[in-house]
Design a protein around this nucleic acid. Structure first.
Length: 494
RNA sequence: GUCCCCAUCGUCUAGCGGCCUAGGACGCCACCCUUUCAAGGUGGAUAUCACGGGUUCGAAUCCCGUUGGGGGCACCA
Protein backbone atom coordinates (compact mmCIF):
# COMPACT_ATOMS: atom_id res chain seq x y z
CA UNK A 1 0.00 0.00 0.00
CA UNK A 2 0.89 3.56 -0.50
CA UNK A 3 2.41 5.60 2.28
CA UNK A 4 1.15 8.83 0.79
CA UNK A 5 -1.85 10.51 2.39
CA UNK A 6 -4.96 8.74 1.24
CA UNK A 7 -6.96 10.41 -1.49
CA UNK A 8 -10.03 8.61 -2.78
CA UNK A 9 -12.82 9.61 -5.04
CA UNK A 10 -16.38 8.77 -5.90
CA UNK A 11 -17.03 9.59 -9.53
CA UNK A 12 -20.62 8.99 -10.57
CA UNK A 13 -21.78 9.80 -14.03
CA UNK A 14 -24.98 11.80 -13.94
CA UNK A 15 -26.88 9.57 -16.31
CA UNK A 16 -29.43 8.66 -13.67
CA UNK A 17 -30.18 8.78 -10.01
CA UNK A 18 -27.82 7.55 -7.33
CA UNK A 19 -28.47 3.85 -7.05
CA UNK A 20 -27.95 1.49 -4.16
CA UNK A 21 -24.77 0.09 -5.66
CA UNK A 22 -23.33 3.53 -6.26
CA UNK A 23 -24.33 4.60 -2.79
CA UNK A 24 -22.43 1.72 -1.26
CA UNK A 25 -19.37 2.52 -3.37
CA UNK A 26 -19.62 6.10 -2.15
CA UNK A 27 -19.95 4.95 1.45
CA UNK A 28 -16.86 2.76 1.21
CA UNK A 29 -14.82 5.54 -0.33
CA UNK A 30 -15.98 8.00 2.28
CA UNK A 31 -15.40 5.60 5.16
CA UNK A 32 -11.98 4.63 3.86
CA UNK A 33 -10.95 8.26 3.62
CA UNK A 34 -12.25 9.04 7.09
CA UNK A 35 -10.72 5.95 8.67
CA UNK A 36 -7.34 6.83 7.20
CA UNK A 37 -7.38 10.56 7.75
CA UNK A 38 -7.54 10.96 4.00
CA UNK A 39 -9.38 13.14 1.53
CA UNK A 40 -12.69 12.21 -0.03
CA UNK A 41 -13.27 13.71 -3.44
CA UNK A 42 -16.48 13.86 -5.40
CA UNK A 43 -16.07 14.13 -9.13
CA UNK A 44 -18.79 14.19 -11.72
CA UNK A 45 -17.92 12.02 -14.72
CA UNK A 46 -20.19 13.67 -17.23
CA UNK A 47 -18.29 13.00 -20.44
CA UNK A 48 -21.31 11.37 -22.00
CA UNK A 49 -23.19 14.45 -23.16
CA UNK A 50 -26.18 12.56 -24.47
CA UNK A 51 -27.04 10.90 -21.18
CA UNK A 52 -25.70 13.31 -18.58
CA UNK A 53 -27.98 15.99 -17.18
CA UNK A 54 -27.62 18.79 -14.64
CA UNK A 55 -30.73 17.57 -12.95
CA UNK A 56 -29.19 14.17 -12.35
CA UNK A 57 -26.12 15.86 -10.94
CA UNK A 58 -28.31 17.74 -8.49
CA UNK A 59 -30.15 14.57 -7.55
CA UNK A 60 -26.85 12.83 -6.86
CA UNK A 61 -25.51 15.70 -4.77
CA UNK A 62 -28.72 15.75 -2.77
CA UNK A 63 -28.53 12.00 -2.21
CA UNK A 64 -24.92 12.28 -1.09
CA UNK A 65 -25.88 14.94 1.41
CA UNK A 66 -28.80 12.90 2.68
CA UNK A 67 -26.46 9.96 3.16
CA UNK A 68 -24.22 12.25 5.17
CA UNK A 69 -21.23 11.61 2.92
CA UNK A 70 -19.49 14.94 3.07
CA UNK A 71 -16.82 15.44 0.45
CA UNK A 72 -13.65 17.42 0.98
CA UNK A 73 -13.20 18.39 -2.64
CA UNK A 74 -15.69 18.55 -5.45
CA UNK A 75 -18.78 20.37 -6.63
CA UNK A 76 -19.86 23.25 -4.39
CA UNK A 77 -16.87 22.91 -2.08
CA UNK A 78 -14.08 23.34 -4.59
CA UNK A 79 -10.54 22.19 -3.95
CA UNK A 80 -7.03 22.50 -5.29
CA UNK A 81 -7.40 19.86 -7.96
CA UNK A 82 -10.46 21.12 -9.80
CA UNK A 83 -12.48 21.51 -11.77
CA UNK A 84 -14.44 18.50 -10.62
CA UNK A 85 -16.69 18.12 -13.62
CA UNK A 86 -15.12 16.21 -16.48
CA UNK A 87 -16.81 18.41 -19.04
CA UNK A 88 -14.81 21.31 -17.64
CA UNK A 89 -11.57 19.41 -17.98
CA UNK A 90 -11.52 18.77 -21.71
CA UNK A 91 -8.32 20.79 -22.10
CA UNK A 92 -6.58 18.60 -19.57
CA UNK A 93 -7.41 15.48 -21.56
CA UNK A 94 -6.50 17.12 -24.84
CA UNK A 95 -3.10 18.18 -23.52
CA UNK A 96 -2.46 14.77 -22.02
CA UNK A 97 -3.37 13.01 -25.27
CA UNK A 98 -1.23 15.36 -27.34
CA UNK A 99 1.69 14.75 -25.05
CA UNK A 100 1.29 11.00 -25.41
CA UNK A 101 1.22 11.30 -29.21
CA UNK A 102 4.31 13.50 -29.16
CA UNK A 103 6.10 10.96 -27.01
CA UNK A 104 5.10 8.11 -29.26
CA UNK A 105 2.99 6.47 -26.56
CA UNK A 106 -0.21 7.06 -28.49
CA UNK A 107 -0.97 7.48 -32.17
CA UNK A 108 -3.52 8.69 -34.65
CA UNK A 109 -5.84 6.12 -36.15
CA UNK A 110 -7.75 6.75 -39.34
CA UNK A 111 -9.74 3.54 -39.48
CA UNK A 112 -13.44 4.03 -40.06
CA UNK A 113 -16.00 2.35 -37.78
CA UNK A 114 -16.97 0.25 -40.79
CA UNK A 115 -13.45 -1.03 -41.27
CA UNK A 116 -13.15 -1.84 -37.57
CA UNK A 117 -16.39 -3.73 -37.67
CA UNK A 118 -15.25 -5.70 -40.72
CA UNK A 119 -11.92 -6.52 -39.04
CA UNK A 120 -13.73 -7.74 -35.97
CA UNK A 121 -15.97 -10.01 -38.03
CA UNK A 122 -13.03 -11.39 -39.94
CA UNK A 123 -11.17 -12.17 -36.71
CA UNK A 124 -14.24 -13.92 -35.41
CA UNK A 125 -14.56 -16.02 -38.54
CA UNK A 126 -11.00 -17.22 -38.49
CA UNK A 127 -11.39 -17.92 -34.75
CA UNK A 128 -8.57 -15.62 -33.88
CA UNK A 129 -8.37 -15.50 -30.08
CA UNK A 130 -7.48 -11.85 -30.42
CA UNK A 131 -10.51 -9.98 -31.64
CA UNK A 132 -9.45 -6.48 -30.77
CA UNK A 133 -8.03 -3.74 -32.90
CA UNK A 134 -5.60 -5.04 -35.50
CA UNK A 135 -3.17 -2.15 -35.03
CA UNK A 136 -3.61 -1.05 -38.61
CA UNK A 137 -2.47 2.51 -38.00
CA UNK A 138 0.13 1.82 -35.34
CA UNK A 139 3.07 2.05 -37.70
CA UNK A 140 2.04 4.95 -39.86
CA UNK A 141 4.91 7.38 -39.97
CA UNK A 142 4.17 10.16 -37.44
CA UNK A 143 4.92 12.91 -39.96
CA UNK A 144 2.57 11.28 -42.44
CA UNK A 145 -0.10 10.89 -39.78
CA UNK A 146 0.24 14.53 -38.80
CA UNK A 147 -0.15 15.53 -42.45
CA UNK A 148 -3.41 13.57 -42.72
CA UNK A 149 -4.68 15.13 -39.51
CA UNK A 150 -3.82 18.59 -40.78
CA UNK A 151 -5.58 17.80 -44.02
CA UNK A 152 -8.75 17.30 -42.05
CA UNK A 153 -9.04 13.56 -42.20
CA UNK A 154 -11.13 12.19 -39.30
CA UNK A 155 -9.07 10.41 -36.69
CA UNK A 156 -9.12 8.90 -33.26
CA UNK A 157 -6.21 8.60 -30.88
CA UNK A 158 -5.15 5.19 -29.63
CA UNK A 159 -2.87 4.23 -26.79
CA UNK A 160 0.19 2.25 -27.83
CA UNK A 161 0.41 -0.85 -25.67
CA UNK A 162 4.09 -1.84 -25.57
CA UNK A 163 4.57 -5.13 -27.44
CA UNK A 164 6.93 -6.46 -24.82
CA UNK A 165 4.92 -5.39 -21.81
CA UNK A 166 4.28 -8.94 -20.61
CA UNK A 167 2.03 -9.49 -17.60
CA UNK A 168 0.12 -6.60 -16.18
CA UNK A 169 -0.45 -7.15 -12.49
CA UNK A 170 -3.26 -5.25 -10.87
CA UNK A 171 -2.79 -4.86 -7.14
CA UNK A 172 -6.24 -5.14 -5.69
CA UNK A 173 -6.93 -4.72 -1.99
CA UNK A 174 -9.88 -7.08 -2.03
CA UNK A 175 -8.90 -9.56 -4.72
CA UNK A 176 -5.16 -9.64 -4.25
CA UNK A 177 -2.94 -9.49 -7.33
CA UNK A 178 -4.80 -10.09 -10.55
CA UNK A 179 -2.67 -10.87 -13.55
CA UNK A 180 -3.51 -10.06 -17.15
CA UNK A 181 -1.45 -10.61 -20.24
CA UNK A 182 -0.78 -7.36 -22.07
CA UNK A 183 -1.08 -9.18 -25.37
CA UNK A 184 -4.78 -9.45 -24.79
CA UNK A 185 -5.00 -5.70 -24.55
CA UNK A 186 -5.57 -3.90 -27.79
CA UNK A 187 -4.56 -0.38 -28.61
CA UNK A 188 -7.83 1.07 -27.42
CA UNK A 189 -9.16 4.49 -28.29
CA UNK A 190 -8.43 7.26 -25.82
CA UNK A 191 -9.82 10.07 -27.88
CA UNK A 192 -12.86 9.92 -30.11
CA UNK A 193 -13.09 11.45 -33.55
CA UNK A 194 -15.39 14.12 -32.13
CA UNK A 195 -12.57 15.33 -29.94
CA UNK A 196 -13.82 13.94 -26.62
CA UNK A 197 -11.91 11.54 -24.41
CA UNK A 198 -13.12 8.02 -23.67
CA UNK A 199 -13.90 6.92 -20.15
CA UNK A 200 -10.82 4.76 -19.71
CA UNK A 201 -8.66 7.72 -20.59
CA UNK A 202 -10.48 10.55 -18.86
CA UNK A 203 -10.75 8.79 -15.51
CA UNK A 204 -7.12 7.84 -15.49
CA UNK A 205 -5.97 11.33 -16.44
CA UNK A 206 -8.17 12.71 -13.67
CA UNK A 207 -7.21 10.15 -11.08
CA UNK A 208 -3.54 10.74 -11.83
CA UNK A 209 -4.00 14.49 -11.90
CA UNK A 210 -5.94 14.52 -8.65
CA UNK A 211 -3.42 12.29 -6.93
CA UNK A 212 -5.88 9.51 -6.18
CA UNK A 213 -4.14 6.80 -4.16
CA UNK A 214 -6.90 4.18 -3.89
CA UNK A 215 -9.62 3.44 -6.37
CA UNK A 216 -12.63 1.80 -4.76
CA UNK A 217 -15.23 0.99 -7.36
CA UNK A 218 -17.52 -1.69 -8.75
CA UNK A 219 -16.37 -5.13 -9.79
CA UNK A 220 -17.45 -4.47 -13.33
CA UNK A 221 -14.35 -2.34 -13.80
CA UNK A 222 -11.85 -5.03 -12.90
CA UNK A 223 -11.47 -6.19 -16.48
CA UNK A 224 -10.92 -2.62 -17.58
CA UNK A 225 -8.20 -2.06 -15.08
CA UNK A 226 -5.21 -3.38 -17.07
CA UNK A 227 -6.19 -0.98 -19.84
CA UNK A 228 -6.15 1.82 -17.35
CA UNK A 229 -2.82 0.69 -16.02
CA UNK A 230 -1.48 1.11 -19.55
CA UNK A 231 -2.61 4.72 -19.46
CA UNK A 232 -0.99 5.36 -16.09
CA UNK A 233 2.23 3.94 -17.40
CA UNK A 234 2.08 5.95 -20.60
CA UNK A 235 1.41 9.04 -18.53
CA UNK A 236 4.32 8.19 -16.28
CA UNK A 237 2.00 8.40 -13.29
CA UNK A 238 2.07 6.11 -10.24
CA UNK A 239 -0.55 3.37 -10.38
CA UNK A 240 -2.94 3.54 -7.43
CA UNK A 241 -4.13 0.65 -5.30
CA UNK A 242 -7.41 -0.75 -6.54
CA UNK A 243 -10.29 -2.22 -4.58
CA UNK A 244 -13.00 -3.76 -6.69
CA UNK A 245 -16.16 -4.40 -4.76
CA UNK A 246 -18.83 -6.85 -5.80
CA UNK A 247 -22.22 -6.08 -7.20
CA UNK A 248 -25.47 -5.91 -5.34
CA UNK A 249 -28.10 -8.39 -6.46
CA UNK A 250 -31.85 -8.59 -6.18
CA UNK A 251 -33.65 -11.39 -4.36
CA UNK A 252 -33.62 -13.49 -7.53
CA UNK A 253 -29.84 -13.38 -7.75
CA UNK A 254 -29.93 -11.03 -10.70
CA UNK A 255 -28.34 -7.64 -10.76
CA UNK A 256 -30.47 -5.16 -8.85
CA UNK A 257 -32.84 -3.33 -11.14
CA UNK A 258 -36.20 -1.62 -11.27
CA UNK A 259 -37.95 -4.96 -11.20
CA UNK A 260 -36.77 -5.43 -7.64
CA UNK A 261 -38.57 -2.33 -6.45
CA UNK A 262 -36.85 0.77 -5.20
CA UNK A 263 -33.29 1.11 -6.41
CA UNK A 264 -32.48 4.77 -5.98
CA UNK A 265 -31.36 6.36 -2.76
CA UNK A 266 -34.06 9.00 -2.85
CA UNK A 267 -36.79 6.40 -2.96
CA UNK A 268 -35.55 5.07 0.36
CA UNK A 269 -35.32 8.55 1.79
CA UNK A 270 -38.89 9.24 0.70
CA UNK A 271 -40.10 5.94 2.10
CA UNK A 272 -39.01 7.16 5.51
CA UNK A 273 -35.77 5.29 6.11
CA UNK A 274 -33.25 6.90 8.39
CA UNK A 275 -30.05 7.99 6.73
CA UNK A 276 -27.98 6.42 9.51
CA UNK A 277 -29.78 3.10 9.23
CA UNK A 278 -29.58 3.06 5.46
CA UNK A 279 -25.85 3.74 5.52
CA UNK A 280 -25.38 1.12 8.23
CA UNK A 281 -27.22 -1.53 6.26
CA UNK A 282 -25.46 -0.75 2.99
CA UNK A 283 -22.05 -0.67 4.65
CA UNK A 284 -22.65 -4.17 5.97
CA UNK A 285 -23.65 -5.42 2.57
CA UNK A 286 -20.20 -6.62 1.61
CA UNK A 287 -18.22 -5.51 4.59
CA UNK A 288 -18.07 -6.70 8.19
CA UNK A 289 -16.56 -5.08 11.24
CA UNK A 290 -16.20 -8.51 12.79
CA UNK A 291 -18.32 -11.61 13.03
CA UNK A 292 -20.80 -10.26 15.53
CA UNK A 293 -21.60 -6.62 15.03
CA UNK A 294 -24.65 -5.65 13.04
CA UNK A 295 -25.15 -2.12 14.22
CA UNK A 296 -22.30 0.03 13.05
CA UNK A 297 -22.94 3.71 13.62
CA UNK A 298 -21.54 6.22 11.21
CA UNK A 299 -18.68 7.28 13.49
CA UNK A 300 -17.58 3.68 13.97
CA UNK A 301 -17.69 3.17 10.24
CA UNK A 302 -15.61 6.30 9.81
CA UNK A 303 -12.98 5.06 12.22
CA UNK A 304 -12.95 1.29 11.74
CA UNK A 305 -13.64 0.71 8.06
CA UNK A 306 -10.98 -1.25 6.27
CA UNK A 307 -10.61 -2.74 2.84
CA UNK A 308 -9.43 -6.14 4.00
CA UNK A 309 -12.82 -6.94 5.43
CA UNK A 310 -14.57 -6.24 2.17
CA UNK A 311 -16.23 -9.33 0.77
CA UNK A 312 -15.54 -10.66 -2.70
CA UNK A 313 -18.96 -12.21 -3.13
CA UNK A 314 -21.86 -10.46 -4.71
CA UNK A 315 -24.43 -9.55 -2.08
CA UNK A 316 -28.19 -9.88 -2.22
CA UNK A 317 -30.10 -6.86 -1.08
CA UNK A 318 -32.46 -7.85 1.75
CA UNK A 319 -35.22 -5.31 2.42
CA UNK A 320 -36.31 -7.12 5.59
CA UNK A 321 -32.96 -6.71 7.22
CA UNK A 322 -32.87 -3.08 6.17
CA UNK A 323 -36.20 -2.63 7.95
CA UNK A 324 -34.84 -4.31 11.03
CA UNK A 325 -31.78 -2.06 11.09
CA UNK A 326 -34.03 0.93 10.65
CA UNK A 327 -36.12 -0.24 13.59
CA UNK A 328 -32.99 -0.56 15.71
CA UNK A 329 -32.06 3.04 15.04
CA UNK A 330 -35.60 4.12 15.82
CA UNK A 331 -35.54 2.24 19.14
CA UNK A 332 -32.29 3.96 20.04
CA UNK A 333 -33.85 7.41 19.79
CA UNK A 334 -35.13 9.05 22.93
CA UNK A 335 -38.81 9.91 23.03
CA UNK A 336 -38.50 13.60 22.36
CA UNK A 337 -36.18 13.04 19.42
CA UNK A 338 -38.56 10.47 18.02
CA UNK A 339 -41.34 12.95 18.57
CA UNK A 340 -39.74 15.85 16.74
CA UNK A 341 -37.95 13.96 13.98
CA UNK A 342 -40.26 11.08 13.22
CA UNK A 343 -43.70 11.49 14.70
CA UNK A 344 -44.43 15.15 14.06
CA UNK A 345 -43.24 15.30 10.45
CA UNK A 346 -45.29 12.22 9.63
CA UNK A 347 -48.42 13.56 11.31
CA UNK A 348 -48.02 16.84 9.49
CA UNK A 349 -47.48 15.08 6.18
CA UNK A 350 -50.61 13.03 6.79
CA UNK A 351 -52.62 16.15 7.54
CA UNK A 352 -53.36 15.17 11.12
CA UNK A 353 -51.31 18.01 12.53
CA UNK A 354 -50.48 21.36 11.04
CA UNK A 355 -46.95 22.59 10.76
CA UNK A 356 -45.81 24.78 13.61
CA UNK A 357 -49.03 24.66 15.60
CA UNK A 358 -49.17 21.40 17.50
CA UNK A 359 -52.55 20.39 18.88
CA UNK A 360 -51.08 19.18 22.18
CA UNK A 361 -48.22 19.93 24.53
CA UNK A 362 -44.86 18.27 24.18
CA UNK A 363 -45.49 15.85 27.05
CA UNK A 364 -48.42 14.48 25.05
CA UNK A 365 -46.21 13.80 22.03
CA UNK A 366 -43.48 12.32 24.18
CA UNK A 367 -45.96 9.91 25.70
CA UNK A 368 -47.29 9.01 22.27
CA UNK A 369 -43.73 8.53 21.04
CA UNK A 370 -42.97 6.15 23.88
CA UNK A 371 -45.99 4.10 22.80
CA UNK A 372 -45.34 4.10 19.08
CA UNK A 373 -41.57 3.85 18.96
CA UNK A 374 -41.30 0.12 19.74
CA UNK A 375 -44.09 -0.50 17.27
CA UNK A 376 -42.37 1.25 14.40
CA UNK A 377 -39.76 0.05 11.94
CA UNK A 378 -40.44 2.70 9.33
CA UNK A 379 -41.47 6.26 10.04
CA UNK A 380 -44.74 6.45 8.08
CA UNK A 381 -46.16 3.58 10.11
CA UNK A 382 -46.85 5.98 12.96
CA UNK A 383 -49.65 7.63 11.04
CA UNK A 384 -52.07 4.72 11.05
CA UNK A 385 -51.17 3.88 14.62
CA UNK A 386 -51.88 7.41 15.81
CA UNK A 387 -54.89 8.13 13.66
CA UNK A 388 -57.45 7.08 16.29
CA UNK A 389 -56.26 9.92 18.48
CA UNK A 390 -57.38 12.46 15.92
CA UNK A 391 -60.92 11.30 15.31
CA UNK A 392 -62.70 12.98 18.20
CA UNK A 393 -65.70 11.18 19.62
CA UNK A 394 -66.44 9.44 16.35
CA UNK A 395 -63.56 7.03 16.07
CA UNK A 396 -63.68 4.74 13.05
CA UNK A 397 -64.66 1.32 14.31
CA UNK A 398 -63.10 -1.65 12.61
CA UNK A 399 -65.91 -4.01 11.69
CA UNK A 400 -64.13 -7.22 12.46
CA UNK A 401 -62.88 -5.87 15.78
CA UNK A 402 -66.42 -4.89 16.75
CA UNK A 403 -67.96 -8.21 15.84
CA UNK A 404 -65.23 -10.14 17.62
CA UNK A 405 -64.97 -8.04 20.78
CA UNK A 406 -68.05 -5.93 21.29
CA UNK A 407 -70.99 -7.65 19.66
CA UNK A 408 -70.70 -10.49 22.12
CA UNK A 409 -72.83 -11.52 24.98
CA UNK A 410 -72.04 -9.87 28.29
CA UNK A 411 -69.95 -7.08 26.81
CA UNK A 412 -72.63 -4.56 27.58
CA UNK A 413 -72.14 -5.09 31.28
CA UNK A 414 -68.37 -4.80 30.85
CA UNK A 415 -68.59 -1.45 29.10
CA UNK A 416 -71.12 -0.25 31.62
CA UNK A 417 -68.84 -1.16 34.50
CA UNK A 418 -65.85 0.36 32.74
CA UNK A 419 -67.63 3.64 32.28
CA UNK A 420 -68.66 3.70 35.86
CA UNK A 421 -65.17 3.00 37.08
CA UNK A 422 -63.66 5.59 34.79
CA UNK A 423 -66.15 8.27 35.62
CA UNK A 424 -64.92 8.03 39.16
CA UNK A 425 -61.57 9.41 38.03
CA UNK A 426 -61.60 13.17 37.85
CA UNK A 427 -59.95 15.20 35.12
CA UNK A 428 -56.83 15.91 37.17
CA UNK A 429 -56.32 12.25 37.96
CA UNK A 430 -56.77 11.13 34.36
CA UNK A 431 -53.51 9.31 33.86
CA UNK A 432 -52.55 5.95 32.46
CA UNK A 433 -51.78 4.47 35.86
CA UNK A 434 -55.11 5.49 37.34
CA UNK A 435 -57.01 4.33 34.29
CA UNK A 436 -55.26 0.98 34.28
CA UNK A 437 -55.89 0.60 38.00
CA UNK A 438 -59.58 1.35 37.60
CA UNK A 439 -59.93 -1.16 34.77
CA UNK A 440 -57.74 -3.78 36.38
CA UNK A 441 -60.25 -4.85 39.01
CA UNK A 442 -63.20 -5.17 36.67
CA UNK A 443 -62.72 -8.68 35.30
CA UNK A 444 -62.71 -10.25 38.70
CA UNK A 445 -65.64 -8.17 39.91
CA UNK A 446 -67.68 -9.11 36.84
CA UNK A 447 -66.46 -12.66 36.84
CA UNK A 448 -65.25 -12.54 33.23
CA UNK A 449 -61.89 -12.91 31.57
CA UNK A 450 -59.50 -9.98 31.41
CA UNK A 451 -59.38 -10.26 27.71
CA UNK A 452 -63.11 -9.75 27.35
CA UNK A 453 -63.12 -6.49 29.27
CA UNK A 454 -59.95 -5.00 27.95
CA UNK A 455 -60.52 -5.86 24.34
CA UNK A 456 -64.02 -4.45 24.39
CA UNK A 457 -62.79 -1.20 25.90
CA UNK A 458 -59.89 -1.16 23.49
CA UNK A 459 -62.11 -1.39 20.45
CA UNK A 460 -64.44 1.24 21.83
CA UNK A 461 -61.56 3.61 22.49
CA UNK A 462 -59.18 2.90 19.68
CA UNK A 463 -61.52 1.48 17.06
CA UNK A 464 -59.43 -1.64 16.67
CA UNK A 465 -58.55 -4.76 18.60
CA UNK A 466 -54.90 -3.95 17.98
CA UNK A 467 -53.73 -0.73 19.55
CA UNK A 468 -51.07 0.81 21.74
CA UNK A 469 -51.43 0.14 25.48
CA UNK A 470 -54.92 1.02 26.65
CA UNK A 471 -54.39 3.19 29.70
CA UNK A 472 -51.88 5.43 28.01
CA UNK A 473 -54.02 5.65 24.89
CA UNK A 474 -56.94 6.84 26.98
CA UNK A 475 -54.75 9.34 28.74
CA UNK A 476 -53.86 10.75 25.35
CA UNK A 477 -57.51 10.83 24.29
CA UNK A 478 -58.49 12.69 27.42
CA UNK A 479 -61.28 12.01 29.84
CA UNK A 480 -64.15 13.47 27.86
CA UNK A 481 -63.34 11.75 24.60
CA UNK A 482 -62.63 8.45 26.31
CA UNK A 483 -65.97 8.46 28.07
CA UNK A 484 -67.81 9.59 24.98
CA UNK A 485 -66.34 6.76 22.94
CA UNK A 486 -67.34 4.28 25.58
CA UNK A 487 -70.89 5.54 25.58
CA UNK A 488 -71.03 5.47 21.82
CA UNK A 489 -69.98 1.82 21.68
CA UNK A 490 -72.58 0.62 24.11
CA UNK A 491 -75.49 0.18 21.70
CA UNK A 492 -73.28 -2.18 19.69
CA UNK A 493 -72.57 -4.42 22.63
CA UNK A 494 -74.27 -7.73 23.25
C1' G B 1 -15.31 -17.38 -28.63
C1' U B 2 -11.64 -15.19 -25.27
C1' C B 3 -9.87 -12.97 -20.77
C1' C B 4 -10.92 -11.96 -15.70
C1' C B 5 -13.65 -12.46 -11.10
C1' C B 6 -16.73 -15.26 -7.61
C1' A B 7 -18.53 -19.88 -4.72
C1' U B 8 -19.85 -21.02 4.01
C1' C B 9 -27.30 -21.58 6.70
C1' G B 10 -33.13 -18.90 2.48
C1' U B 11 -30.27 -13.84 3.05
C1' C B 12 -25.85 -10.68 5.00
C1' U B 13 -21.59 -12.63 6.99
C1' A B 14 -17.29 -14.68 10.81
C1' G B 15 -13.50 -17.98 9.44
C1' C B 16 -6.94 -16.39 6.86
C1' G B 17 -4.12 -24.96 8.41
C1' G B 18 -5.64 -27.52 14.42
C1' C B 19 -9.81 -23.33 19.10
C1' C B 20 -15.16 -25.49 13.64
C1' U B 21 -19.14 -32.00 15.67
C1' A B 22 -18.69 -24.17 11.45
C1' G B 23 -19.90 -18.58 15.20
C1' G B 24 -23.12 -13.96 14.82
C1' A B 25 -27.26 -11.18 12.47
C1' C B 26 -32.00 -10.93 9.50
C1' G B 27 -36.04 -14.06 8.55
C1' C B 28 -38.73 -18.53 10.64
C1' C B 29 -40.68 -21.51 15.07
C1' A B 30 -41.53 -22.08 20.43
C1' C B 31 -41.54 -20.24 25.26
C1' C B 32 -41.22 -16.09 28.90
C1' C B 33 -43.25 -11.15 29.72
C1' U B 34 -48.38 -9.56 28.71
C1' U B 35 -55.39 -6.88 28.49
C1' U B 36 -54.19 -6.61 22.13
C1' C B 37 -50.04 -5.55 18.88
C1' A B 38 -45.11 -4.60 19.36
C1' A B 39 -40.48 -4.12 21.85
C1' G B 40 -37.43 -7.07 25.09
C1' G B 41 -35.61 -11.90 27.07
C1' U B 42 -34.72 -17.29 26.49
C1' G B 43 -34.42 -21.52 23.50
C1' G B 44 -34.81 -24.07 18.66
C1' A B 45 -34.76 -25.70 13.37
C1' U B 46 -32.11 -24.64 8.90
C1' A B 47 -24.94 -25.27 6.01
C1' U B 48 -22.69 -33.11 3.66
C1' C B 49 -18.42 -25.17 3.95
C1' A B 50 -20.73 -26.09 -4.92
C1' C B 51 -18.39 -30.83 -6.72
C1' G B 52 -13.90 -33.97 -7.67
C1' G B 53 -8.91 -34.66 -6.95
C1' G B 54 -4.43 -33.51 -4.48
C1' U B 55 -0.77 -31.19 -0.48
C1' U B 56 -0.61 -32.08 4.91
C1' C B 57 -0.26 -35.75 10.95
C1' G B 58 -4.54 -32.38 10.17
C1' A B 59 -8.32 -28.28 5.09
C1' A B 60 -14.16 -24.39 5.06
C1' U B 61 -9.15 -22.50 5.10
C1' C B 62 -3.42 -24.09 0.43
C1' C B 63 -2.97 -26.18 -4.98
C1' C B 64 -5.26 -28.24 -9.55
C1' G B 65 -9.54 -29.45 -12.22
C1' U B 66 -14.98 -29.52 -12.96
C1' U B 67 -19.62 -27.27 -12.54
C1' G B 68 -22.49 -23.08 -11.74
C1' G B 69 -22.91 -17.70 -11.50
C1' G B 70 -21.04 -12.76 -12.88
C1' G B 71 -18.14 -9.11 -15.56
C1' G B 72 -14.90 -7.20 -19.64
C1' C B 73 -13.46 -7.67 -24.76
C1' A B 74 -17.41 -0.46 -27.96
C1' C B 75 -15.39 6.12 -31.13
C1' C B 76 -20.85 3.56 -23.14
C1' A B 77 -19.58 4.82 -18.38
Amino acid sequence: MSDKPVRVRFAPSPTGKLHIGGARTAIYNWAFARANGGTFILRIDDTDPTRSTDENTQVILRAMRWLGLDWDEGPEVGGDYGPYFQTERLDVYRDAARKLVDEGRAYYCFCTPEKLEADRKAAQERHDPFQGYQRTCRDIDPAEAQRRVDAGEPYTIRIKVPQDRGDVVVHDAVHGDVTFNARELDDFIIFRSDGTPTYNFATVVDDADMGITHIIRGDDHLSNTPRQVMVYEALGAPVPVFAHISMILGADGKKLSKRHGATSVEEYRDAGYLSDAFVNYLALLGWALDGDTTIVPRDVLASRFSLDHVSKNPATFDPEKLDWVNGQYLQAMDDSTFSSEILMPQLVAAGLESEGTPAHDSAWYDLLSSLLKPRTTLAPQVVEKARFLYEGDEVTLDEKSVSKNIAKEGVSACLEAAREALEAIDADGWHAEAIDAALEELPERLGVGKRKVFQAVRVAECGNQVSPPLGASMELLGRDTSLARLTRAMPLAG
